[in-house]
């Protein structure tokens, strides 16, 4: 070996020198936290597909009610209980307006001489189920989103104060939380709804009355972790006010965890709304939400299973998509929390 090396011609080697000015050069573009997370979540196919599904559902929730000429709350008794009929697909023998009348199978549209299309059929009052489905999805999404935002706001303020000021304040605030956390959400939500006038706000308040506790505990833990770190101490030494330290130094660091938790709060709120409406404590007619639509559909399951199928499908899809996006975000935003 050594002999061979010695025999190599000198001119095949070239002396290179290290240019010290390149030592500090960064070959890859510097990515901030969010760009980095985006790179990670992009690899998660389930999460990406879910994001598109969510975007589609949100788009439909706001545009869907205006896509045909029927109003979600228009009652037309002569058009009651019609099966779905979709132009184009009707020629394939599906969604062609054929339904049961007693024990016979007939085309109800021809029978009743109706020449418009109800894409997803109508309910017992002749309301267009396509418009109602998306209107209901819209209401469910609004309820869930507002409830989640309220949870986050109260949770961050409560947990932030408790964690940042510590000492006696923290002690008292945590004792209160420990008592509150024992109260089962379900029970309180149901009791609250019995007292309040039914409506969107009643549901939002009922859901968020205990919802913020989980968030406040997480925020408190995070604040405790960050407030003793050097960069916060440095800011303090330089004379930054508490407000500035919290908003500029601590909050940006715990933003990721807050967002992750919000992604799990939203499906929980959607579920609770649907659940409450299903047991009859939710929105009242003529308002629609996914829960009330499922409840209506359930009553007619024997005769018109599609009335239940569409809202149940959208609800399930929404829950699955939110959970998958939440999982994906958790893995992407906080690699340490990855299972």
């Amino acid at each position: 070996m050594t002999n061979n090396l010695e025999k190599l011609p000198k001119d095949s080697f070239e002396r290179i020198t290290i240019d010290s000015s390149h030592a500090e050069k960064i070959s890859k573009p510097s990515l901030n936290f969010w760009q980095d997370s985006w790179l990670r979540i992009r690899k998660n196919k389930a999460a990406i597909v879910s994001i598109f599904i969510l975007l589609f559902i949100v788009f439909m929730a706001f545009a869907g009610p205006y896509m045909n000429e029927h109003d979600p709350q228009d009652v037309k008794v002569t058009h009651a209980n019609l099966p779905p009929k979709i132009p184009g697909l009707e020629k394939l023998g599906i969604f062609d307006g054929v339904g049961k009348l007693g024990s016979k199978t007939v085309n109800l549209y021809e029978l009743k001489k109706i020449d418009t299309y109800y894409w997803f059929g109508t309910d017992s009052l002749g309301r267009d189920l396509f418009s109602r489905l998306w209107k209901g999805t819209q209401i469910s999404l609004i309820i869930a989103f507002v409830a989640a935002v309220i949870d986050v706001v109260i949770g961050v303020i409560y947990g932030g104060i408790s964690g940042y000021y510590g000492g006696r304040t923290d002690d008292i605030m945590q004792r209160i939380v420990e008592v509150l956390i024992g109260i089962p959400t379900l029970v309180i939500v149901i009791l609250m709804l019995m007292v309040m006038d039914p409506g969107i706000w009643a549901i939002i308040i009922a859901i968020s009355i205990t919802g913020w506790i989980g968030m406040s505990r997480i925020v408190r833990g995070q604040v405790l972790k960050y407030k003793t770190q050097e960069f916060v101490m440095a800011a303090k030494t330089l004379g930054a006010s508490d407000k500035r330290i919290i908003s500029k130094h601590i909050l940006p660091n715990i933003m990721a965890i807050i967002i992750i938790n919000m992604m799990f709060t939203i499906p929980t709120a959607i579920f609770f709304e649907a659940f409450l409406s299903f047991i009859g404590l939710g929105l009242q007619a003529p308002e629609a939400s996914l829960g009330t639509l499922i409840n209506d559909g359930y009553k007619f399951i024997q005769y018109q299973p599609f009335m239940l199928f569409f809202p149940a499908f959208v609800l399930s899809l929404l829950m699955i998509a939110f959970n998958l996006v939440g999982d994906g975000l958790r893995d992407a935003l906080d690699p340490k929390m990855k299972d």
Binding site: A274, P305, A312, I320
Partner: peptide, 22 residues
């Protein structure tokens, strides 16, 4: 597992009832 966590039990219940009982 994802389906079990995401889909509310009442939707399952209604589906089961419809398919297996009705």
């Amino acid at each position: 597992a994802i389906l079990g966590i995401s889909i509310p039990s009442f939707v399952f219940a209604v589906l089961l009832q419809y398919v297996f009982a009705v």
